[in-house]
């Protein structure tokens, strides 16, 4: 077994792990009780899944085809930038449109802030 074959196996392993993580996080989106906990599954583990898959592909092309692709690195960078932003925006929009949290929720310090503001705005009208 020479070096390039070993690197090929490493990249195969990374892509496999990434695919498994993607499947698990997809089941998580179905299994969690409300939209806020679902966003945990959607932002974290799927980001790691995409990171692992893309770095596996990157390593493969670099080692076997000796082709250093900047596009994969850019892809990783943009997934890192966009997935937290979308997670934040989805939860924010859900909270503003009063989507209920699950019953096991124990603490909510945000409701005071938002409801006070709404009351002040209501008086102003």
């Amino acid at each position: 077994m020479n070096v390039s074959e070993m690197i090929e196996w490493i990249s195969v392993f990374l892509i496999l792990i990434g695919a498994i993580l993607a499947v698990i996080s997809a089941t998580g989106i179905i299994r969690f009780p409300d939209v806020y906990t679902r966003s945990h599954a959607a932002t974290k583990s799927s980001t790691l899944a995409v990171l692992l898959t893309l770095s596996g592909v990157f390593i493969y092309f670099w080692a076997v085809e000796s082709y250093f692709s900047v596009r994969f690195i850019l892809g990783i960078l943009f997934v890192f930038l966009t997935s937290p932003v979308s997670g934040h925006l989805i939860t924010r929009a859900a909270y503003r449109s009063k989507v209920k949290m699950t019953e096991s929720t124990v603490e909510d310090q945000l409701s005071d802030a938002i409801h006070e503001k709404e009351q002040i705005e209501g008086k102003g009208e």
């Binding site: 698990i24 996080s25 089941t27 998580g28 299994r31 969690f32 009780p33 409300d34 806020y36 906990t37 599954a41 583990s45 949290m101 699950t102 096991s104 929720t105 124990v106 603490e107 909510d108 310090q109 945000l110 409701s111 802030a113």
Partner: peptide, 14 residues
């Protein structure tokens, strides 16, 4: 996700 029954106590903190 993989635990058989999801028992979480979520909350929002400042």
């Amino acid at each position: 996700i993989l635990s058989p029954k999801i028992e979480v106590t979520p909350g929002i903190i400042r």
